[in-house]
Simulated scan of single mutants.
Amino acid sequence: MNTATQQAQQEPDAAAEGAATAAFPPVLQATANGAAPGNPADRAVKRRRVLDILDAAGRDSLLLTTNTALTWYLDGSRVHISLAGDPIAAMLVDRDGDHLVTFTNEAARIAAEELPDGVALHTVPWHGQLHAAAAMLAPGGKPLAEADVAAELRAARQEFLPGESARYARLCAEAAAAMTDVLSGATPETTEFGVASALAARIVAMGAEPLVLLCNGAGRTEFRHPLPTHAPLGRRAMAVVCARRNGLVANVTRWVRFDAGAPAERDAEARIAAVEADIFDATVPGARLDGIFAEIQEAYPRHGFGAGQWTLHHQGGPAGYAGRDPRATPATDDTVVRNQTFTWNPSGPGVKIEDTVQLTESGITTLTVDPRWPTAVVNGIPRPLTLQL
């Protein structure tokens, strides 16, 4: 027996029983739990999608191990402790049911607050091997690995269901409102860290986790991923938030200005919005991400930016249970579907535009929207302007 298996079987009755279900007995079969996230109707559809993946692969079980896959399949359960760490749970999906395995020191909270109805919870010692323990629940201890069907799982996440669409819309609207509140109160003397800390407080207060907080003042606009510093904002600033709640990630960028703005600056802001409008036009059901990316590459020079601008920063892509799911590249061939969500983020020197949107029957619908923020209609869609204070 290898070391991983030995550690996974440290329950006292494991040797005597000789079965995975004895080594990791269910400690709770979830019943009605109003505190736990998860929409039963949405979860049933997600389970069917996973079973379809198993059918296509000719397998009987699948082991889910990443935060993206787990929070999607559980429909919003929190399976992290450290934002920088691995999940503290793994999920074995088989034809008989769903089995969530977690460490003994996490089980009580998971059972009380994060376990959807119909999911069996199993434990492994805090010093045990989580993935090995979950795999042992599968016949022969050899489930299909998540990495082997990554593309299929990503496709299963694409079409948002009614419950998660509503949750995402609420999160996105609250993230946009936090941006409005914080930037409306900023001054040229406010520091970048001051903006980031105020945003962090708002994001945490709304029950979310600030995965990304960026800010640059007038002296650092050349950086497209500007980690904040103690520098004051000066005459102009950008702030970026990626906020996660119950697995879903809202992404939004906003700009604030404390003077009238230079003509060239205003012109660049309008042109980057035109680039984004071309991307939105290309984001239609049936389009492939590599085709949309080709449109991105052509849109920059079409609107007066250098042809190589797309090489200086990622351009975004589908969104949802990951910041980008996945980032679009010239080689990404995923096909767009209706009700899928996106965050495109074209950028140029000193300009960037970014919102989380959903492709609905009526077209692109902006989710990170706050009616208090100034907008201009670009190709039929209200888009954020720079807030002028």
Rank of each mutant, 00 (worst) to 15 (best):
A134F: 03
A134Q: 09
A134W: 05
A135W: 02
A135C: 03
A135V: 05
A135R: 15
A135G: 09
M136N: 12
M136I: 11
M136Y: 09
M136F: 13
L137Q: 03
L137Y: 12
L137K: 14
L137D: 00
L137M: 00
L137S: 05
A138L: 09
A138Y: 15
A138V: 08
A138G: 11
P139D: 09
G140W: 09
G140V: 07
G140Y: 03
G140C: 15
G141L: 11
G141W: 09
G141M: 06
G141D: 00
G141S: 02
G141N: 10
G141E: 00
G141P: 14
G141R: 03
K142G: 13
K142F: 15
K142R: 08
K142S: 05
K142L: 10
P143C: 05
P143D: 05
P143N: 02
P143R: 10
P143E: 03
P143K: 06
L144S: 00
L144A: 03
L144P: 07
L144I: 00
L144D: 00
L144E: 01
A145R: 07
A145T: 02
A145F: 10
A145C: 14
A145V: 11
E146W: 07
E146Q: 04
E146N: 02
E146H: 13
A147G: 07
A147Q: 12
A147F: 11
A147D: 12
D148A: 12
D148I: 11
D148V: 13
V149N: 02
V149C: 06
V149D: 02
V149W: 03
A150P: 08
A150W: 03
A150K: 07
A150I: 11
A151E: 08
A151S: 13
A151P: 07
A151I: 02
E152Y: 12
E152G: 01
E152T: 11
L153P: 14
L153I: 14
R154L: 07
R154T: 11
R154K: 10
R154Q: 07
R154F: 06
R154W: 06
A155D: 07
A155E: 02
A155Y: 00
A155F: 08
A156V: 02
A156D: 02
A156I: 01
A156W: 06
R157V: 07
R157T: 02
R157K: 06
Q158D: 08
Q158F: 05
Q158Y: 15
Q158H: 13
E159C: 04
E159N: 06
E159L: 13
E159W: 09
F160M: 08
F160A: 04
F160D: 09
F160G: 12
F160Q: 14
L161I: 08
L161A: 01
L161E: 01
P162K: 01
P162I: 01
P162M: 04
P162Q: 05
E164Y: 08
E164F: 10
E164K: 07
E164V: 11
E164G: 13
E164S: 12
S165R: 13
S165H: 10
S165I: 06
A166P: 12
A166K: 09
R167W: 12
R167E: 14
R167S: 04
Y168N: 12
Y168G: 03
Y168T: 01
Y168I: 08
Y168L: 13
Y168E: 13
Y168D: 04
